[in-house]
């Protein structure tokens, strides 16, 4: 049975100036889960994350780690911060040591580990994020993506059970995004739970298997990726938009077309093909001058072509799941 790592019960947080940042938060994160907290700017995502390792203390309700309510004692906090690693949104907020190696070693040093153990963990963490060989580099010589990877390595070196990342892909180019996502998939494969905060719904669709929608400090929706993105009303209420493909299908559905909401472009493509029928689809290919699909359609015939699309879809699913 998978264990629950983080659980909050009616948790709320109000800043000393009286600003209410979080209200009535009830969430549960289990071992090995990929969770996303989505919400617009100022929704309270970063404030929520600061509760997960005891930086912020709830002003109402409580938070449990491995079923035990947090007591905020010094020794306990050190243990919790080792278990729950937070990667900040801006890597410049996290990388404060003059060299990469010193920064990555900072966490393990605070755990009071032996020097050999620290060396081993630093080496391992840098290898995991593909930054071996850059140990002596100064952080200001690194690119945005590299800084992010070093920030992740700094947390990995503490060997956490759960990794919390605030906007992990913000400000990165597509290659940088791919590299970060690959690292997160790899860590998750090794049973590490990952929580990300983002308003990049396209990325969240691909990554998360459980989503919380946060708006004005409250959870206004939670469920699987399909459940959340099929509920466009909640998304619009949180000032978010569904993925482009889902938005298009949502519009078609509202116009009376017999389509289901699909979250990726490939799935949406196939769904539209079903809805339009082969002849209309054939006409559409003429219209968009798609040679490849057109040739396939002619050479295979409509039925076999359709079958091919199904096979490709199955294959795609296998690749993603493996």
């Amino acid at each position: 049975m998978t264990r629950t790592i983080i659980q909050t019960e009616n948790m709320g947080f109000t800043y000393p100036d009286g600003t209410s940042a979080l209200q009535n938060i009830n969430i549960e994160i289990k071992e090995g889960e990929r969770v996303a907290v989505i919400g617009s700017n100022g929704a309270g995502k970063s404030t929520l994350f600061a509760h997960f390792n005891g930086i912020n203390k709830p002003t109402s309700g409580h938070i449990k780690i491995h079923g035990k309510p947090m007591t905020y004692r010094k020794e306990e906090l050190l243990q919790i911060r080792q278990k729950v690693g937070i990667v900040f949104q801006n890597p410049d907020d996290q990388l404060f040591a003059p060299t990469v190696i010193e920064d990555v070693a900072f966490g393990p040093m605070n755990l009071g580990l032996s020097e050999d153990e620290v060396d081993g963990r630093v080496e391992e963490a840098l290898k995991l994020v593909g930054m071996t060989g850059l140990e002596k580099k100064a952080p200001h010589h690194l690119s945005g993506g590299q800084k992010k990877r070093v920030a992740i390595a700094g947390i990995l070196a503490m060997r956490p059970e759960i990794m919390v990342l605030d906007e992990p892909t913000t400000g990165l180019d597509p290659t940088g995004v791919d590299q970060i996502m690959k690292i997160l998939y790899m860590l998750n494969k090794e049973a590490m739970s990952i929580i990300i905060a983002s308003h990049d719904v396209e990325m969240v669709t691909q990554f998360a298997d459980k989503i919380f929608v946060l708006h004005d400090g409250e959870i206004i929706g939670q469920g699987t990726t399909e459940e959340i993105f099929n509920d466009c009303e909640t998304l619009y209420k949180a000032h978010l938009r569904p993925p482009k493909s889902a938005e298009l299908l949502y519009m078609l559905k509202n116009e009376g077309f017999p389509v289901n909401i699909k979250l990726t472009v490939d799935e949406a493509y196939h769904e539209i093909l079903h809805a339009l029928g082969s002849q209309s689809y054939h006409n559409l290919l003429h219209l968009v001058k798609d040679d490849l699909h057109h040739k396939l359609l002619h050479s295979l015939g409509e039925d076999k072509y359709h079958e091919l699309l199904h096979l490709l879809e199955e294959n795609q699913k296998d690749v993603t799941s493996s």
């Binding site: 600061a50 690693g85 907020d93 010193e102």
Partner: peptide, 22 residues
């Protein structure tokens, strides 16, 4: 502002008055 956030990130990695650099 940066100082405040950096302090938070250091605390997140177990920073205390006994912390040492590598």
């Amino acid at each position: 502002e940066q100082g405040e956030t950096i302090y938070m990130s250091m605390v997140s990695r177990g920073f205390s008055d006994q912390s040492n650099f590598y």
